[in-house]
Design a protein around this nucleic acid. Sequence first.
RNA 1: GCGAGCGUAGCUCAGUGGUAGAGCGCGACCUUGCCAAGGUCGAUGUCGAGGGUUCAAAUCCCUUCGCUCGCUCCA
Length: 483
Amino acid sequence: MSEKNQGSKLEALVSLCKRRGFIFQASEIYGGLNGFWDYGPLGAELKRNIKDAWWRTMVRERDDVVGLDSAIIQHPRTWEASGHLEGFTDPMVDCRACKKRYRADQLCEELGLKLEFETGSNAEKKLKLPDGAKCPACGSKDITAPRAFNLMFKTFVGPQEDTSTVAYLRPETAQGIFAQYNNVLACSRQKVPFGIAQIGKAFRNEINPRNYTFRSREFEQMELEFFVKPGTDAEWHEYWVAERLQWYQRIGLPEGRLHRYVYGKDELAHYASACVDVLYDFPFGTQELEGIAARGDFDLGRHQQFSGKSMEYFDQDTKEKFVPHVVEPSAGTDRIALALLCEAFHEEWVPTSDVAGSQPIPVDYAQPMPPGCETRTVLRFAPCIAPIKVAVFPLLKNKPELVSKARGLYDALRKRWSAFWDVAGAIGRRYRRQDEAGTPFGITVDFQTLADDTVTLRARDSMQQIRLPIADVAAKLAEAIET
RNA sequence: GCGAGCGUAGCUCAGUGGUAGAGCGCGACCUUGCCAAGGUCGAUGUCGAGGGUUCAAAUCCCUUCGCUCGCUCCA
């Protein structure tokens, strides 16, 4: 598909997400707020399903991982220890002549110079460019003073606003895990190797949020910190990369559009021994869903240093004492939600006024629509992550016996799955509405149901119907949804 | 943050100084035996927001917010 078509595909998806209630712009009634998004009824279900799938795979189905839900606001020292307070500050300069922008430190490095501090008694140190600094592009010396960008959201604990009460909204959930490492270890009876998993909101004051929800200022992370014996980092890192790639395929992202980016030695943070990003082919480019990093003992070591509390682990078998090394698979829930939406979104040509069972064909954007066809928009979510699993319809709403029979089935199914009830309009319209919501199954109660207790089960992707006894419905759905 | 473009109904968009529109969608009712069907009726809205010019502003000017693209950034 051409770049233009990719762009219009994303536009069509954005429009559908609003129309059907997946994603809304945050604070829209006040003109919106850059970098923030709200999830509507279907989006909330979708995200919940992603998080449930992750938690099930990473925590419940494993013996060696336990969960945590730590506070968004941690002691400010946390961010000194983690390096975020310093490392998140990228001083930037602009060339007034040619309008290019640079990171001040990178600009200086390029010119073989060093960034300097303003002389003065200001409590906050101000950076300044050294003499001789010039724009590498146009050579102009008319460059703005470095401006500091702290990418952490700042707030105050308690009603007093001064430097003693400054706190930050966490830029990642990981540090809450490291800070509670000792407590979790003590209560969970886990032994190294073991992991602590957490799902939660994180906040970054991104310079320029872009690409729909891809880079947001408030977002949700799903992070595992997996603690291993020093020296076993590499094998565990490899293990988790493979595990995670498998998980993405299970929730419906095909292998062909997933990629791994292996960091070169020169790209790694100084304490890291390996890092692999899991990438997905978004319409706007191939971008990260998750980073899996082998971080050594950097995090626990730093917290040990800053808190004065020992983070050492005593291995009963070998009688060794060590600070565990950590392997960190860190995924972005909102990015995964966006990837699933992009992957699921399809437009198809379907013959009009045809009987049930007509086969849809994928839209060929290079061709005009064949005569006698119309476009069907369908979200082909994997059943396990579809916001609504099944919709139940009485064939006609003005026949009370159909309505009450269908309602009974709906009430039974909704106890187990998220289900949808719709009596309004023609049956075909109701099917198509569910196609746009990504609902994999539609069940219709008709007059034959009243006679023999069978219903039709219509599949979203093929538009095919089968007839089966009501007694078999739950098993049939479970087969598709719960595998 | 810089540059360019854009912002009108839920969605897609028309409307260049003079009574805010279309298609689709949405709601109610009727009809209707399985793929966006037909009929009748209905609601769509501070034309992104604020200010200015004008007898008169969706339209012209300024500011601001948001979106898109490019630059930059992505620890």
